[in-house]
Every structure is written in C-alpha cells, then in structure tokens.
Design a protein around this nucleic acid. Structure first.
Lengths: 339, 339
DNA sequence: ACCCTGTTGTGAACCGGTTCAATTAGTTAC
DNA sequence: GTAACTAATTGAACCGGTTCACAACAGGGT
C-alpha cells in the first residue's frame, strides 16, 4: 500500500511550475513573495513531501547527528543518556550512544572512531575530563560536557554540578546530626587527577570539625559493598557514610546489613543522584536529586545554540536538591574521642 | 592543530594516479587487481582517509541509522536501549532512541515522524504490537520487534521471550512451596488486547490447582505499590505475588512493608527481569533474569542480516533464567479454605 | 526617459560518494 | 598475426538537496 514513490524537490518544483532553486528557497522561507511561499508550502504538504535529511546533510555539510559518549555504567547516567537522546530527537537530531565503560582508553578510541562518522556535535559525560585526547576531535565539532569541564578544550561548553554546594550541605547535615567521623565513598575514575569532590570534602569537613576519610569505590552495587565494608572495618569506624552515587549507597546498605549494622541507628547513609529506587529501599535513602530534565535541556540547547549565545562563560551550573528521607540520624554512640 | 582538510575520494584517486571510480571500487575490493587494491588501500590510510558516511548514504540510498522505539519507562528497557545502541554502533550504525512513554498514540506519531527521517531499520519494544500503524512504515524498512511479534506485519522478525516457560516455572515454584492462591501483577499496557502472560497464568495455574488473581499495575515503583496493596486488601489475600517486572516487585515490597507483612514469611514475592538492584533489597528478590547481551546481539543481527537468512520463521526465542534468592518461602498459614 | 535599488526567479555548480556503459589493456587460442 | 574473450580502468550520470552569480522585472526619484 505504501507503494508511492518518495516525492523529491523536483516533483514539487514541477507541480508549482517553478525551478528547483526557487522551490528550495520558498520552502525554507528564504526568498520569494509571501504568496509564492504559501502556495509552494501548500503543494508540498499536499503531496506529502519532506526533504531528505541525507541529501540536505550532504549539501550543507552537517550530518545532523550527535554522539553521546561517556561512562554509562550507572543507572543515573543511563537514564540521562536516554533522556538526552529523546531531547535531541525533538530537535531533529539523531544520536549515537557510545558507552566507554569507564576506561579512558576506550574513550579515546571512541572519539577517534567518531571522527570518521562525521558527527557534528558531542555530548560528553567524560571519564577523563582532563585528558588531552579531547582536542583530537575537530574544532568545528561542538562539544558539550556534562559534569566536568574539559580542561584541554576551554572553548567547549559545560553543564556543571555545584559540588561545593552539594558536599557542603551533605556534610553540614551530618555535622548537625552530631556526626564527627564520616566516610566518603567516591566512584573510581581512573586517571582523573585531583578529584574536586574529595578535596572539597576534606577542606569543608575540616572547617566543620569533621574527620572525613575518603575511599574510592566502583559504581556497581557489589563493588561498592566491598569498598564500604573495608571502610567500615577500619579501626575508627565512621558513623556516617556519604556515597557519591546511589548505586554506591545501595552497596553501603548491603555492607551494613552484612556487618549487622542498623541503618540509620548504627550508621547513617547519605546518597547522591536520587534514583527511583532510593525511596524503595528500607529505610528510604536520604540523598540528593537533580532536575534531570533541566540538565538535559541545558545540554541540548548549549549544543544547538548558535555560536557564543547563552552565558558568557559557556557554562551552566546546577544545584543538587537535598531530599531528606530516612537513612540518616544522630549517631547512636556519641563519636568516641579516639578510643 | 587539526586544521588538515578532510580527505576526499578524489584526493586518494589523485595520489594513486587513478580515477575516482577505480579508487572507489578498489577501496571496497570490488574490482581491480589485488596489487592495485592493496596499493590504494595503503595510500588511503596513509592519508587518513575514510569515506564520508553521508555521501555514501545518499548514493546508495540507505541512511545507516536505525531507530529504537518503544516504551522505555522501566530500567530494564532503558538498559536494553543503551545496549542496543552500543551494539548497533559496533556495526557502524547510528541509532535514534525514541521513548514513546507507554502511549500507542505517541508510538504512532513517532513512527510517522521516523518515516521522514529515512531510518532504514527499526528495533521496536512495541507498546501495542497488534496495532495497525506498524504497517505505515514503508516495507523496505526492516523492523525487528522485541518481546512481541507485530501481528500487522508478519514479515518482520522478532526476538521473543518464552513466557510460557517463565510463567510455568514461576507458578510451579510457588505451587511446590505450597501456595494455593497467588496474585499476578502485570504491567498496564493500554490497548493491548489479550495479554498472553495473564491468560497463560490462568490456565497454567488451573492445571496446577492454583487460584490466580490477575491485576494490572503501572511499571513505576509507586504505582505498583498501590496496585499491590489493593490486591492484598482483597478478601482472599494471596500468599504469593508474581510480579511481571522487577520494578513492580519492588513496589510489592513497599506495599508489604506498609501493610506490616514480612517477606517471605507472610508473603512470597517473585519478580521478573533481574535488575542490578534485585540482589540488593532485603530479602534479595527471587526473580527471572535474561541474557541481555544475547538478546541484543540477536536483535542487531536480525536487523543487519541479509534478506531471509537466519531462522526460517524469522523469530528467535529466549528463555528466562530462574534466579532463586530469598523472597519466596512456603506460606506461613496453610492457605485457609476460603475463610 | 534614465539610472538606481530591491525583489523574484533561474541555470549551473557543488557536496562526496556509487554505478553504468563504454574504452583500453592483457591473455589465450588458433 | 589476429580474432576472441576477459580483466582493469574510466568519464559521466546520478542520489536530492543547497547556494552562487546573474537575468528579468518591479517601482522610486529626479
């Protein structure tokens, strides 16, 4: 039934008694009288015409598809990737999702292969934001990075997270509850030198009189459980755990359960990146959420925005939203003075 | 630094002292002597040439990108979508992910808009597999559907799930434990008439002497909690709940907790679609898992496979894998005879 | 009338590949 | 030595749009 041949620009031109050129201009409203434009437009959608994106892409040099690259291991990023793809689709852009699985080597490789694909934009959830390889992609390919700015590419735009605010409120919350020693579980991000969040936590903790022990953990529930139990097995057991990622927090729950610790009575757990499951586990996880849709919109519009519009600095910052649920409480034993 | 202009086919031709045509053939190994082919190939990658996918697409009429459409609400499908996108990328195919959010109307609309995009393949996780609108997409666009075959498009290939086996093992497991009345929570899928799983459960349950009450539930944790508590509030409270989807199962946990029921002592819960979180909740969820990678590979190869290769029927079937954890147990009170 | 400017419309070239039909070179056969 | 056939190579057309440079024509001003 769908046997009708695709209509081409020439078909419309013929039907309108105009040249290809005039028709092309008219359809895009670039030239010709109002009357002609309307007439051509009418004919076009009467015949069910729509321009072939491929031909158009070839002619004007842009492919119309962008890549979403980064480490998509955890649920949060995975969801974000899907939302981004959706958001781009709304702008008539196709997307390629490339999971680099947490490895800078793969990230570099993917970037290289992307060059051949002629993507005309990249949204990155960078594994290694300070890597040099980000300069390998041609300058005219716009890059928007989410989470961290690309140090090697200062002209690229970024959507940042206000970690200072997040870490600050988290530690303040714990300090207010009376905790004195807290453990911080940060995701393992290979090569990235100087993780801002950890450093922030150390200095902010200091100023609040908290002793913060930092430990890194894979983003998987199992890996995190392992990392958490090691942290809890230390001689000065922290009374609260601040987990940079809900998956890690879930791992911490498991570790607590394995060690026979009650949450939040014996151990407070604080998450990050509110997931749908956060309110499911028992006790419900106190965590930080994001306005994901806003983040996606910001990233998409940063990518599609004409040159240098928007914020002067080329960066937008989002604040996490504190969601106080049930997994934090004052420490049961007032943090003993050393031993 | 990356200032070098893109190499075009003509550049290679010049460097090799051949015509554009000869070069094109040689690069693809379609014509010319072995020697020439090798030489051209060498020159090409010495100059760092790679064919522009857009120009190629225009010339041979296929766009090289496929769409992944369907309801991507739950974590499982979301993860699958990302894996599919990855799998397609490995075959040099870009993908467009379109979430239709569970609405057949949106599904129809998305399909319509996809036609304009000239996708040359679709992988569907159909909301309404029996809808007529699947015939709207041109026949030459290959469709692979996952989960349900498209009744309106018998020629399309499908990757199916062996529900009979899954439901059978699930009910058998519950029957063996001594349960007599079980509730089935199936996801709400609007318009889909005659949900096979429900029917299956009814008849299989009959043959095992089980009384199965079917109820539908949204796939979100909250919605499911609501649906579950309604089911549990019925006068003949089931002693076990079989949830078609882990998210629903998590909702059931929450409902049980709200009602003060112990899992699995007072209520057994059985999930479906093993998620990473299944082993996290307490007690760990007994559920069914899938070999997702195999499913993805099957779908991708069904899409890329040349005409009519593969299974004669055009369908592959996967069996869920039973994962026995902690959330099922014999019913505490032997299922009372009515009241 | 005449020049100037501004708008509408046009043919042709172009984007970067693929493919057809025709030409040229290279073998083998008699 | 030449007919006969196969393999290598090529120019030109094509895919379906966009864009440039220029022609045709309108109205305004003096």
């Amino acid at each position: 039934m769908t046997g009708a041949q695709r209509k081409t620009l020439q078909d419309i031109a013929d039907a309108a008694g105009l040249s290809k050129a005039a028709t092309s201009y008219a359809l895009r409203g670039l030239r010709g009288s109002e009357a002609t434009q309307a007439r051509v437009r009418a004919i076009a959608d009467e015949l069910g015409y729509s321009a072939d994106p491929i031909a158009r892409a070839l002619a004007n040099g842009r492919s119309g598809n962008v890549a979403i690259v980064g480490s998509l291991r955890d649920l949060w990023r995975q969801g974000l990737a899907v939302m981004l793809s959706e958001g781009l689709r709304a702008q008539e852009l196709s997307s390629i999702i490339a999971d680099v699985d947490g490895s800078p080597q793969r990230e570099a490789a993917v970037l290289r292969s992307l060059a051949a694909q002629r993507v005309d934009g990249i949204i990155a959830l960078p594994v290694d934001p300070s890597a040099e390889y980000w300069t390998q992609v041609p300058e005219q390919t716009r890059i928007v990075s989410i989470g961290d700015a690309l140090t090697a590419r200062p002209e690229s735009e970024s959507v940042l997270f206000d970690n200072e605010y997040g870490v600050g409120t988290a530690l303040q919350h714990l300090a207010d509850l009376g905790h004195r020693t807290v453990g911080l579980l940060a995701p393992t991000l290979p090569t990235t030198p100087g993780r801002p969040a950890e450093l922030l936590a150390q200095s902010l903790g200091d100023s609040m009189g908290l002793s913060v022990t930092v430990s890194s953990s894979p983003s998987s529930v199992h890996g995190a459980a392992h990392a958490a139990s090691q942290l809890l097995a230390g001689r000065e057991r922290p009374t609260a755990l601040f987990c940079l990622g809900d998956s890690i927090a879930f791992g911490a729950y498991r570790a607590a359960r394995d060690l026979g610790l009650q949450v939040p009575a014996d151990l407070s757990i604080l998450g990050f990146d509110d997931s749908e499951l956060a309110s499911l586990v028992s006790p419900e996880l106190t965590t930080f959420g994001w306005d994901e849709q806003a983040i996606v919109d910001a990233a998409v519009s940063a990518l599609t925005m004409p040159e240098g519009t928007g914020t002067a600095s080329g960066r937008v910052m989002f604040r996490p939203i504190f969601i106080d649920r049930e997994s934090t409480a004052p420490p049961s034993t007032p943090s003993a003075p050393s031993h």
